[in-house]
Amino acid sequence: MICDFVAEFAKLIATYPEDIKVQTKQGDEITEIVLYANQADVGKLIGKEGKMIGAIKTVISGCKAKDGVSYKINVEPV
């Protein structure tokens, strides 16, 4: 569910939405969400001073309160 949100949000921002992929890596205490995007879109997804990725992190932090799992998100080029 969180991965779907992250993917759909990223596709709205991206110039190349077909390149957006999201993977999760389960850990003991932290679930890492890796957002893969076209190199041209990485800067857009991070945003000026990290504001776009910060907005995504804010929404994800609400999920932490609901299910007790900590999430970490990274944006990487395809």
Rank of each mutant, 00 (worst) to 15 (best):
Q26L: 13
C63H: 04
V22G: 03
N74G: 10
I46H: 02
I46V: 09
V75T: 08
G47H: 06
K57R: 15
E76L: 12
K11R: 15
G54T: 05
E29R: 14
K57T: 05
K25N: 09
V69Q: 14
M52K: 13
E76P: 06
Q23L: 09
E49C: 04
G50L: 00
Y71F: 11
V69E: 11
V78T: 14
K44G: 08
F9S: 13
G43Y: 10
T15S: 14
I46Y: 01
I60F: 00
P17K: 01
I56Y: 00
N74T: 15
Y71C: 05
I46T: 05
G43L: 11
D41H: 04
I2W: 06
E76C: 10
D19T: 12
F9Y: 11
K44L: 14
A37D: 08
D19Y: 11
V78C: 13
I73P: 01
L45M: 06
Q39T: 13
Q23T: 10
E32A: 13
P77F: 11
T15I: 09
N74S: 15
V22L: 03
K57Q: 10
D28A: 11
K44Y: 10
V42R: 10
Q26W: 03
G62A: 04
I60K: 00
V34G: 03
D28I: 11
G47Q: 05
A65N: 11
I2C: 05
T24H: 12
T31R: 12
K25P: 02
D4A: 12
A40R: 13
M52I: 15
D41R: 03
T15V: 08
K48D: 04
T31A: 06
E32Y: 08
F9Q: 04
V22H: 02
K21Q: 13
K11I: 10
V42Y: 09
I13C: 06
I20Y: 00
E29L: 11
E18S: 09
A40Q: 13
T24L: 11
K25S: 07
K57C: 04
A14V: 06
E76S: 11
T58V: 00
V78N: 14
I30C: 02
A10W: 03
I46W: 02
V6P: 01
G43R: 10
E49Q: 15
S70C: 05
A55W: 07
I20A: 01
K48N: 10
I46G: 00
K44A: 12
E49I: 04
F5G: 03
A55E: 02
G50D: 01
L45H: 05
I56L: 08
D41N: 06
E29G: 04
V69A: 11
Q26F: 07
I33L: 03
L35A: 04
I60E: 01
I30R: 06
I30K: 08
I13E: 06
M52V: 15
K51D: 00
A65H: 12
E18D: 14
E32T: 14
T31Q: 09
D19V: 09
Y16M: 08
F9V: 14
V6T: 02
G50W: 00
K66Y: 10
M1L: 08
D28K: 13
E8F: 14
T31C: 12
L45R: 03
A7R: 09
V75W: 04
K21S: 12
L45D: 02
V22I: 06
C63W: 05
K64Q: 12
I60M: 07
V69H: 12
K57L: 01
A37Q: 09
L35P: 05
